[in-house]
């Protein structure tokens, strides 16, 4: 499996935060919510989402807007929005290291944003329907080889690049839904099926890693509070 680095609860002034690092891409995400929204953001029956993606360099433009839109589309079905009517949740992703040519690609950043945002939502203790996990993939030009979570250099020599986000059930062992499949470049339907297959495997493994991380963190926190209780 690709080595990923995860940490949550990294920021102090927000309700939930996480940092997700996958190869040369690093994203920091902050979640504030549920909070009182401005009048124009308010939805009478459900939680409103304010999703912001901020690039590592330069001003946010249409590329970031598109990523925000994708991210919102992935997160909306995951959050139990009806539980928080007339409330707002702000999700801010700051890309710390893009790890890809920002002029051409956004796949790696997007998949990291999805994972970071999901972990930050868990850290903020918002009600979620199910677990999710996202990976990026690339089909290389010469060999036609399919790479899971490619590096920025490999993306440059790829024929097509994909972002996959899956909703998982059954202890994150089964795929419930495809939340997002975003593909760019030339590819055949056989290749796309292969992407789904390899991506699914990658997502499941990554989900287990994330679950283990969260479990370890929670146990650690519970044990620590217990020790404190005994101490006092």
């Amino acid at each position: 499996m690709t080595t990923i680095k995860v940490s949550t609860g990294v920021l102090t002034n927000v309700d939930g935060s996480s940092q997700f690092e996958c190869r040369d891409t690093k994203v920091l995400c902050a979640v504030t919510g549920p909070v009182e929204p401005k009048a124009r953001q308010e939805l009478p029956t459900r939680l409103a989402l304010e999703v912001v993606v901020r690039p590592a360099k330069g001003v946010p433009n249409t590329r970031e807007k598109l990523m925000e839109d994708r991210l919102r589309a992935v997160l909306t079905p995951l959050i139990v929005c009806s539980k928080y009517p007339r409330q707002l949740c702000q999700i801010t992703c700051q890309i710390l290291e893009a790890g890809e040519d920002e002029g051409e690609f956004s796949q790696k950043e997007l998949s990291c944003c999805i994972n970071a945002a999901f972990l930050a939502l868990i850290d903020a203790q918002l009600a979620l329907h199910s677990f999710s996990s996202s990976v990026s993939l690339a089909v290389l030009k010469e060999s036609g080889e399919l790479v899971l979570n490619p590096t920025g250099d490999l993306l440059k020599v790829s024929l097509s690049a994909h972002t996959l986000a899956l909703e998982l059930t059954d202890g994150s062992k089964k795929v419930a839904n495809v939340l997002l499949l975003d593909s760019n470049g030339d590819f055949t339907d056989a290749q796309l099926l292969k992407v789904l297959q390899v991506g699914e495997q990658g997502c499941l493994e990554q989900a287990q890693f994330m679950r283990n991380f969260l479990a370890a963190k929670i146990t650690d926190e519970i044990v620590r509070t217990k020790v404190n209780d005994n101490g006092n």
């Binding site: 920021l11 002034n13 927000v14 920091l28 912001v52 901020r54 801010t92």
Partner: peptide
């Protein structure tokens, strides 16, 4: 030099 704040730093900052 671009200094833009976002709600990440705290709820007092507006996007």
């Amino acid at each position: 030099i671009s200094t833009e704040s976002s709600p990440m730093a705290g709820p007092q900052f507006e996007n």
